[in-house]
């Protein structure tokens, strides 16, 4: 990138006016759909609006105090954290292994890669629906395959059995997004300067040492962005869970996004939802800023 200081004198006043003209519609729309909701949510969260009552008087921190004692909220955060901390490493590890598998010459490599893209571009909701079909205890093929491996007929209630709902959601999630990791990591690995790995080879470094000391630092910036994108998506996971379990059985797989949806649009706890929305934004901001700093991505 050119240093801004060198460019600065070039930008004339008329350029600036033209630029503002170009920028104005986008910024206005983003303010409308980005900033307005935040401000509005903030205001509402200090009031007492529910399905039955519109009380717009200032209620202080009442809603925020309620957050602390809302067990269902903390459980939904825990559920989100469980999915996050299992799916993200799994997608990364599988994606990396697949990228390594397809890195070198292989007959039909391009065709394989083109096919492996497909799960990632399907609508997440449809992905959930597909796994609903696959996991059906009677008419789905998964139980049939498990039956072959097990030796006897398997009747696993994937979307109902408390022990199986998380594996079910994780299967769908990992299936859909491992190819995303794979594609990005494959591109990153392909871009590693070959002379660096060759120099390491001549210097006597084995596969692991070369990977750790040469390849990993080289692909890290790209890998960090991929982790950030996936991490954010996982933190607000909604569609797959909605399609597969709807948060059930009971509230066992209710993620923070599902809980917010239920509160806001099923129970119309308007003000309290506003408070939760702010909690979520706060958590995400802290996580993202922390991640960006830790991963050395700030540019």
């Amino acid at each position: 990138m050119r240093p801004a200081a060198l460019d600065a004198p070039r930008i004339r006043a008329s350029d600036r006016r033209f630029g503002l003209l170009l920028l104005a519609p986008s910024v206005l729309l983003l303010l409308l759909v980005g900033l307005f909701p935040l401000v509005y949510t903030l205001v509402v969260s200090f009031q007492q609006i529910t399905l039955f009552e519109v009380d717009t008087s200032f209620a202080g921190l009442a809603n925020y105090r309620m957050l602390l004692s809302d067990e269902r909220l903390w459980e939904s955060l825990l559920h989100t954290a469980i999915l996050f901390s299992i799916a993200l490493p799994l997608e990364l590890a599988l994606g990396l292994a697949m990228a390594q598998l397809f890195l070198e010459r292989l007959p039909g490599r391009q065709i394989f890669i083109a096919l492996l893209v497909l799960p990632t571009v399907i609508a997440p909701l449809v992905a959930g629906a597909v796994w609903r079909l696959l996991l059906d205890h009677r008419y789905g093929p998964v139980n049939q395959i498990v039956g072959w491996l097990w030796g006897e007929e398997a009747v696993l209630l994937w979307t109902v059995n408390p022990l199986l709902v998380y594996p079910a959601i994780l299967m769908a999630e990992v299936w859909q997004w491992t190819p995303f990791m794979f594609l990005i990591l494959l591109a990153a690995l392909t871009n590693v300067d070959r002379s660096l790995t060759e120099a390491a080879e001549i210097d006597g470094a084995g596969f692991w040492l070369t990977f750790r000391k040469v390849v990993l630092p080289a692909i890290w910036p790209v890998m960090a962005v991929a982790l950030l994108i996936r991490g954010l998506d996982l933190a607000r996971i909604f569609d797959v869970v909605y399609a597969l379990t709807g948060g059930g059985p009971g509230t066992m797989t209710e993620t923070i996004s599902i809980y917010t949806y239920v509160l806001g649009f099923r129970q119309f706890e308007t003000s309290y939802t506003g408070a939760i929305a702010f909690l979520v934004i706060a958590i995400l901001t802290v996580l993202v800023v922390g991640a960006v700093k830790r991963m050395g991505l700030a540019r």
């Binding site: 300067d193 002379s195 660096l196 060759e198 120099a199 080879e201 001549i202 210097d203 006597g204 470094a205 000391k213 040469v214 630092p217």
Partner: peptide, 16 residues
């Protein structure tokens, strides 16, 4: 390569 008792300087230096 590592067992050949050689060292090499690359065109683009290949510095880490």
């Amino acid at each position: 390569p590592k067992d050949r008792d050689i060292a090499m300087v690359f065109q683009n230096y290949a510095l880490y």
